[in-house]
């Protein structure tokens, strides 16, 4: 299976673990990801806040390049996915919009190349949960809460999962052998860039998610968004210190845990690069399995 790959800006820097683990896991599953040459920023979230047409046209250019190659686009980042999907949907909905966007980007784009969330691809196209043989190191004993973030399941009219209670990530984690702990914050917004430009507003939003995750009894949070990761991982220590709480909640991209279950090494997946130490918990997984085996 071949896709045009749109890593997006975060995956080049602060979200590099998502990029590393995506590429490693895709290779293991035989998915060919061909990076869109000279791709541009999708504009999330400043472009669409400033200009309706810029917000649609920036992602449309990337889709147009993929369309010329006859490929759908695989997008790991939730925000990039939501912006790109929006452009695709608007182009498909209206001839007039399509004509205007084509005029702006100076390329044809008919809406044939589809924006696909990487989470959706792993969940739907691959049927990971049926292929138990591939799992060299099932995530037995690992308790996770699945955090989709707000944008992964929006816009609603074309979503691949339920916008209120999505299950794709839950099903992947269950298939990997992890225990998915129920909680009420699957799609709650982390505050996104508000933590950067309006901390008094953004921080409490991230804090609520960390509190709920801790209360659920999970060992860690699994996500599919680099913005959520930055808020939950990078800012976890700062938020905890302000209220004298030590959350100790590693946050993983779902692709990292896929890689762990395939027994890839932590470094290859980017796991040592997290702010909240994330290696110890996944290193324990194999051992927990041995103990269980011994008891049985």
């Amino acid at each position: 299976m071949e896709y045009a790959y749109y890593p997006g800006c975060s995956l080049d820097s602060t979200g590099i673990e998502f990029n590393l683990s995506t590429k490693a896991v895709a290779k293991a599953f035989g998915i060919q990801l061909v990076e869109i040459p000279d791709w541009n920023c999708c504009g999330a979230s400043a472009a669409h806040s400033t200009s309706h047409w810029l917000g649609l046209s920036l992602p449309a250019r990337n889709l147009a390049i993929a369309e010329a190659a006859g490929l759908d686009v695989a997008i790991p980042c939730a925000a990039c996915y939501a912006r790109s999907k929006r452009a695709e949907v608007e182009v498909c909905k209206s001839e007039e919009t399509r004509a205007k966007i084509e005029e702006i980007i100076g390329r044809p784009y008919k809406g044939e190349s589809k924006a696909r969330a990487l989470l959706d691809i792993f969940h739907r196209d691959l049927g990971v949960y049926t292929d138990k043989n591939a799992l060299k190191k099932p995530l037995a004993g690992l308790k996770v809460v699945t955090y989709y973030g707000c944008l992964m399941v929006r816009p609603v009219d074309t979503g691949f999962d339920d916008p209120e209670d999505p299950i794709s990530l839950d099903e992947i984690m269950t298939a990997l052998g992890a225990e998915v702990v129920p909680w009420g914050f699957k799609t709650e917004c982390c505050g996104a860039s508000l933590t950067a430009c309006r901390p008094e507003v953004g921080f409490p939003m991230t804090e609520k998610i960390l509190d709920a995750a801790k209360k659920s009894g999970a060992d860690c949070i699994v996500t599919a968004c680099p913005m959520c990761m930055a808020n939950l991982d990078m800012r976890q220590d700062q938020i905890g210190k302000a209220k004298n709480v030590h959350y100790d909640l590693p946050v993983y991209y779902f692709t990292e845990l896929l890689g762990v279950a395939l027994n890839m090494n932590n470094k290859e997946l980017g796991i040592p690069r997290h702010f909240v130490p994330a290696e110890a918990l996944v290193n324990k997984i194999g051992q927990a399995k041995t103990t269980e085996g011994g008891e049985a």
Partner: peptide
């Protein structure tokens, strides 16, 4: 942690992006 790319990206077609900004603004 080697998570920050200090060297900015050099676009191959910077005129194309600038033109998108200009035309989108005109459309607005």
């Amino acid at each position: 942690k080697q998570k920050l790319n200090l060297v900015p990206h050099k676009p191959k077609n910077s005129e194309e992006i600038k033109s998108i900004f200009a035309k989108a603004a005109a459309m607005d």
